[in-house]
Design a protein around this nucleic acid. Structure first.
Lengths: 129, 129, 129, 129
DNA sequence: GTGGTCTAGACCACT
DNA sequence: GTGGTCTAGACCACC
């Protein structure tokens, strides 16, 4: 089973499913055309409600990460590269501003945070090879 | 008016207030002992309910950013530097993982993100001088 | 009913609720993952307002004693052991100074107070077995 | 000036004044018959309101730590030893229960707390000689 | 159904 | 007039 969720996490389950798929795409584990489990199968496998999986898949479809095709299931569609770039950068800047602000009040230096970024890039991109 | 909030933002009002104060502390605009507006005054100024401001200030108090003194108002108290460092780093790593994952699917490189971090550090620390 | 509060006590209701939960965790009666009553259920059971319980639970969440998950209820999460140790010791020292000062003016000896400490440690830790 | 207060502390000023006097009595620095400053003089010296000092002195009088005599000012009266012992012990037990509960959740051992008690007894009683 | 947020209005302790 | 607490009632996101 590729997809696992933590029912006790504070992160909403539908977002966990969505995030695992996006991570799979980012790391290259999921490629264009790869099939995802059916909504029913995944719901049963994870022990969550149909609606929850449906919501996750709908999100992924809206974001362009999957195509849901009637009677042929859901398949991965690596989205075109530059989409929504500005929106993403704005959101990322806002999130990073919050992190940096907190970091400064704790005397956590910028190297610590940039180190995290390099580490995660390497982990995800490393899987691609 | 130092503190402004966006009533239409998705970010809860009380968190906006809380975040503006923490940013003020991080940038050095707010220093140990500086008074914040009274709960009632700020509520009136922002056009929000007293309890909303109270919630923001209470949050700040629990986190150690302010002291609230009955009948003497609320003042800034820069908290101990190393507090909760591990919890913070864990949360930061989770948030950064999400950002990096999204970035990769958009072909946004690590330089772009580390650049944001340096920029915000400089903006906030620059104000301190 | 595990949780009881005294509506006439000087101790705020939300702190009573908070303290009962922390005592439960300290004694081992509440363990990682144990569910707490829903906010609404506990409010009805205790005959207090929903917001009062919410405040208690939010406090516990910020302190790391519980996780609140929208639509999935509130569960106990025993927090990291060494957190905030210095802040706690400072606060404890201040509280103990007050107690000892009063004790001396009443000729209450140190054995009486250290005895209390041993007694309460034993009571709480005794329940763990 | 024997008496100093911290205007920025969270502890109400009138309690700070009251506590400093009780500590003085506990440590032997203040003895039966020693005069305290007049309400007006102390208020001026500390830069606080008359009412604040008055409240502190009233508390001390009610507790039996001072006598306020018309036109002769306020003098220390070491109270009889065993007064209110049970009330005090109850209150102390409640306060200690809170401290111990928190200590256990942080894995702070009983030696740490009993050590504090011995330290403060020694500090205060040491001054008596 | 769950918690999360916001408004409105009240009373209290402290200064 | 300050913050601290409590009640009441509402709407929202999540499952």
């Amino acid at each position: 089973m590729l997809l696992t969720v933590n029912l006790k996490s504070e992160e909403p389950i539908y977002l966990q499913i969505r995030n695992r798929v996006v991570e799979g795409i980012a790391s290259g584990a999921l490629r264009e055309g790869d099939p995802l489990p059916t909504v029913r199968a995944l719901a049963a496998e994870l022990g969550v409600n149909l609606h929850t999986v449906n919501k996750a898949y709908s999100f992924l479809r809206i974001e362009g990460f999957v195509k849901m095709m009637r009677s042929r299931g859901t398949v991965v569609t690596v989205p075109r590269r530059g989409r929504d770039t500005q929106d993403f950068l704005d959101a990322a800047a806002a999130a990073i501003k919050n992190i940096v602000t907190e970091a400064i009040t704790r005397s956590v230096g910028r190297e610590e945070l940039t180190g995290m970024i390099h580490k995660i890039y390497s982990e995800l991109e490393g899987k691609k090879k």
